[in-house]
């Protein structure tokens, strides 16, 4: 079973709320490319903070059946 975190690039505003809300963090801001990068998905706790705190609806999604 794998956690899949998907960022909707069209909706992402790069506000970074999801990065800050992640306790691990599984998400990073790539300063050079100025975009949110998913890293270490296997460490995700499925707390869904990123989904809750995202500034736009559905810009990030954590997919894990539980």
């Amino acid at each position: 079973m794998k956690v899949i975190i998907t960022i909707n690039r069209e909706k992402c505003t790069r506000c970074g709320f999801c990065v800050d809300a992640c306790p691990i963090p599984c998400l990073f801001i790539d300063e050079e490319k100025n975009e949110i990068v998913v890293k270490d998905e296997h460490l995700c706790l499925v707390c869904r903070n990123c989904e809750e705190e995202a500034s736009r609806k559905d810009c990030i999604k954590v997919d894990f059946p539980y």
Partner: peptide, 8 residues
């Protein structure tokens, strides 16, 4: 708070 409120 340094990040989002009452979350992390």
């Amino acid at each position: 708070d340094k990040v989002v409120l009452a979350t992390n």
